[in-house]
Each structure stands twice: as C-alpha cells, then as structure tokens.
Design a protein around this nucleic acid. Structure first.
Length: 573
DNA sequence: GCCGTTTTCGGCCCGACTGTTTTCAGTCG
C-alpha cells in the first residue's frame, strides 16, 4: 500500500470521528498523522518492516497511532475505521463538505431527521423540514440546497497555474482602486502549492467598501457569499472561492504571515509566540495589549526569534528548525535557469520548428536547449525511429549554423517500454548529446515491473535523466507505483539526473521527492517539456516546485553555464 | 491522540462572519 492510501484511511477516520462528535484535538491528531504519512518520502511500509523502524519518532505519532499504522500495514485493515464505517454512510461524510455544515449540524441532521444520503438531505431541504430545527433556519436550508448543487465543484482544487492567473489578474485590477496602497495574493497560491483550494487576497486600503465594491463587480466574480468590515468572500466563475481581507498598514506583515499559512506552519509559529509571552494574530504581535510588531513579515518572524522564511517552505516540514539554526537554503530563482533540456518540434507532436523553438528560447534568455522529440513507441505523436531520429539530428545541426547565442543539443525523449527495454537501441542512443528516459505507457503495472523499467533505464550507460518520473497528471491520474529509495540510490550511483517537469499538470517530481533526491545528491533538471514557442512560460512553475523542495541553485543542473553543464553530461560519453 | 528542563494532566492558534439568537454556537480559514 502506498503512503497516500494509508494517509487517506486516517483522514477518513478523522472525518468519521468528527461526525461522532469526538474531541476536536483527537480528530486533529488523526489529521496530523495522515499528513505526516502523506509527506514522507520513504515508504511507510518499509519503515514498519525495518528492524530499526520506530514510528513514534515521527512528529505527532505516539504509541497509539504507531500501533494503528502497524495494523494497517500488516493486515491492510483498520478495525476502528471499519466499525465507524458501519455507523456512518459515505454520504454523511460528504455532508461535511457542504459549506456551512460542520460536524455538529450534520450530527443534528442525522439524528433528528434520520438522513442517510445526500438525496435524503436534498428532499428534507426541499420539503422545508430543516429550517424548524434548533440552530437551523430558512437561510441554512437554502445554503444546503445551493451547497448540494455545488458539491461536485466545492472542494475541487485547481492547478496553481489556474489559481495564480486568476489571482494575478484580480490583484492587478484591484490595485488600481483609489486608496489601495498594498495588495497581494497570500495563501497556498503564495506558497506555490501545486494545487489551490481557494484564493486569499490581502490589501491595505483607505476605504474597504470601495475595494469590496470593485471586487463584487469584477468580471471574474460570479457571486458574493459574505461581506463584513474586513473580509469579503466571493465565488469566481469556475467555482473557485476567493477571500479578500482588508487590513491596516501596521498589520500588513502580520496578515501576510497569517494568511499565507500553512496552517501547520502557523500553529508552530504562534506557539513560539506564546512561549515568549507574546500573542500573534493577523493584526500583529502583542505583549499583553501592547503592539510589538506587524508591519512586515520580517518583523513578525524576528519577534519569535526567527529569520524570514520563504513562503514555499512554510509547511512545517522542518523549515522552522532550519530557520532557528540559520540554515535555511537560499532557494533557486527563475533567473538562475540557463537551459531547458526537454522540448518538442514538428518532427513529432510540437507545433514549431527547431529554429522557431531555439529563437523563442533565446528570446527568453536561455543559453542552451535540448531538442527531445518522442521515440517511436509514441505513435500518436509520430514518434521517431532510429532513421528519422538521425535525420532530425542533422536538421538540428543545420539550425546550429543559423542562430547565434544559444547552444542546441541533439536529444531524444526515449520511452522505457513495458518490458523494461528502451524504445531505441543503444547504438543510436550512444549518438545523442542528451537522452531523457521516460515512462509513458503501462503506468499501472505492478511496482516490481515499474521498478525494473526505471532501474534498467538508469543503468543504461546512455541515459542522462529520467523525465517526469512518476507520469502523474494532477487531478487526472496518479503516478506509477515507485519505490523511490531504490531509484534514488541507483540514480546517484549511475550519475543519472532526475527531472522536475514544469508542466503545471505534471510538476513531477513533486516537492517531497525532489527534496529526497537532493538528500541523495542527485542533480535535478527543471524542464518545460514545451510543445510550442510559448511553452517556456511555464518554467516558473518548475522553479516553484524546486523551491518548495528547498532546492538551491547548486542543486539544479541547468543553472550551470553551458560549458559546465556539458562537462557534467560528458562523463556519460 | 499527542506531548512535556515549569507539567504524566491539561493543555492543544486565533479571530471573523453568519445565522440564529437575545448573548452565542458553529463554521471557516
């Protein structure tokens, strides 16, 4: 069982305990455990089976949870969960996802009206049986009906690229409102998390009504859900929720810190404040009633004896401990990237010629690129066989003479076939400047076979890098079942790099595994996998993922000059 | 359920907003 599957069990258990009315802190303990397991780079199954393995060493895992995890790993079941599943239907858990309904209200609905399914809930609301209940009313009943309609949409996370585009546009438009002196997006969008559940925008404004009016009238806003003095909630076309908060200037830094999160990071930061006799909220840092800091984020972190922590790291995954020791990494920047080693042309499924791609890359300031069209297995994309590939490389060589100021490598994105052999034979691969090996097909194969395919590719003397290692598509399909520690070990041993594919749907490796790769001193390359001349625009998302993994310029191979990069890959040739 | 150089018990981050109340509980982030 994969970590994510085990994490999901504990999350479900937390949902059910909530319905049962369990102690909220106990529920949180289960949610923390779920997150801890989900964030692990190594397999929890391996950890349980390791002779030295002690789960209670993990943050938030005590004796009880350790025993439950061991039970899941060894039996595949969690008796407590199975028991609760008999008491509450899956639809009852879904009721918790309806905005405005929490565990208390759902419990009342279940007990008083004996509702079991979402259909029951809908019928009860339509028949007006909910409004008379104590603590409910006409409005709540209406909210439930609307929530039911949107339940598919609600809770759906959107890609960072989508969220950031929406946020950037609204921030730019609201910044023009008179009296708005500062405005920015906070939340998971600012942390550059690969998906966002909502948007948080923060503003300093003389007139909060004016900016809220402007937001309400914004073309991308579908409806206003709530509006108070300092906070407005709207739903954007497409269903994404956006919260606007208007704060005083002296609170801007505190509010930035507060609303950027993550929740887990903030809990630890506020505990630090408490330990120092301070109180930290979105308005500032206070000693008793006295305002101590809050104008800038730097001031807020300084008040709890920490240097400023980059938003991408704020997940309570060790960044606070690093900050305490003044060992935070200097994260890679977009401008550090010198080359892009993964792109396509009209030879396969790209839309631009070799020269057009090279010119577009050069215009973006890149100093070197690799042209890496598909190998023959990708027949849909008219993948290249040895003969066409060699002809393609000749074309690339011609283009080298037509453009100055950018180096072009003759590359190939070669499929690792289902039987673990390479799609092109060693002879032709040995002639390439740069070989990306990838899984495209058979992603659902059992772990052993996936492992064999990746290890064979890594051991192939001509392979430089494994591209989009898991093959996942965020929101569409999970990646292949990979036992990463073995892959990392082999990659380090054979000098094979790993890719962070910058495509916002892929972002593969993810932050957790890119961080683990860094621990194994495996060079990372951040590539766009461009299929068109505007494809380079997504490079930023690869860099964000690298930053979330704590990578520095030195950890990423394509920050090197072309000469240095060539030295690195020449070891293979 | 976790955690502990004040603690093995009693804490566990903190405030805004809504809808239902008539002083506040529940929900949300």
């Amino acid at each position: 069982m994969q970590n994510a599957a085990i994490a999901a069990l504990f999350d479900e258990l937390a949902d059910l305990l909530e319905l049962q009315g369990a102690n909220p802190f106990r529920v949180r303990a289960y949610r923390n455990a779920s997150r801890t397991i989900g964030d692990l780079s190594e397999s929890i199954v391996e950890l349980v089976n390791a002779p030295e393995g002690d789960l209670t060493q993990l943050a938030g895992i005590g004796k009880d949870l350790a025993a439950k995890i061991e039970t899941v790993v060894t039996t595949g079941k969690l008796p407590q969960l199975e028991e609760l599943r008999t008491q509450f239907s899956p639809d009852m858990v879904r009721m918790l996802r309806i905005p405005g309904l929490g565990p208390k209200k759902v419990a009342v609905l279940i007990d008083e009206l004996e509702l079991k399914t979402l259909a029951d809930l809908q019928a009860a609301a339509e028949q007006g049986r909910i409004a008379p209940l104590k603590g409910f009313g006409k409005k709540t009943e209406q909210t439930i009906l609307e929530g039911l309609k949107q339940i598919e949409q609600a809770g759906q996370r959107v890609l960072l690229s989508t969220a950031k585009a929406a946020a950037d546009r609204i921030v730019a438009d609201l910044a023009k409102v008179p009296g708005v002196s500062q405005i920015t997006a906070a939340g998971s969008c600012r942390r550059r998390k690969e998906t966002c559940g909502d948007l948080d925008i923060l503003a300093v404004a003389d007139d909060s009504a004016a900016i809220m009016d402007q937001l309400a009238a914004h073309p991308s806003v579908q409806k206003v859900v709530a509006r108070g003095e300092t906070k407005q909630t709207v739903i954007l076309a497409g269903g994404l929720q956006l919260d606007l908060r208007v704060v005083p200037s002296e609170s801007y830094g505190a509010a930035m810190q507060y609303f950027t999160g993550s929740k887990e990071h903030n809990i630890v930061i506020r505990r630090r404040a408490q330990e120092r006799g301070l109180k930290l909220n979105e308005y500032g840092v206070y000693r008793g009633e006295t305002y101590v800091a809050g104008q800038t984020e730097q001031d807020v972190y300084a008040a709890v004896d920490l240097p400023w922590i980059p938003p991408e790291l704020r997940e309570n995954r060790g960044e606070i401990e690093l900050a305490e020791k003044h060992q935070l990494p200097t994260l890679i920047e977009l401008d550090d990237i010198q080359g892009d080693l993964h792109m396509h042309t009209t030879a396969t499924d790209g839309t631009a010629s070799i020269l057009e791609m090279a010119e577009a890359a050069k215009a973006r300031g890149l100093k070197y690129i690799a042209i890496t069209d598909h190998s023959k297995r990708v027949s849909m994309a008219h993948g290249l066989d040895a003969e066409r590939l060699r002809a393609h490389w000749k074309e690339i060589d011609k283009v080298r003479g037509q453009i100055q100021g950018i180096e072009i490598l003759c590359g190939i994105e070669c499929d690792i076939l289902e039987d673990a052999t390479m799609d092109l034979d060693d002879e032709v691969l040995s002639e390439a400047d740069w070989v990306i090996a990838v899984l495209h097909y058979g992603l659902k194969q059992p772990r052993e076979q996936i492992q064999k395919r990746l290890l064979n590719a890594i051991r192939n003397p001509h392979v430089d890098v494994i591209g989009h290692p898991t093959g996942r598509m965020i929101g569409h399909r999970p990646g292949a079942d990979i036992h990463f520690p073995e892959i990392f070990k082999a990659a380090a041993e054979h000098g094979v790099m790993l890719e962070i594919n910058a495509n916002p749907v892929r972002l593969d490796l993810d932050d957790i595994h890119a961080a683990a790769a860094k621990d194994h001193v495996i060079p990372i390359v951040i590539n766009t996998d461009s299929h068109a001349t505007n494809g380079f625009e997504i490079l930023e998302f690869g860099v964000y993922q690298a930053r979330r993994a704590g990578l520095t310029k030195a950890d990423v191979a394509n920050t090197k000059s072309f000469a240095e990069f060539q030295k690195l890959i020449d070891r293979k040739r």
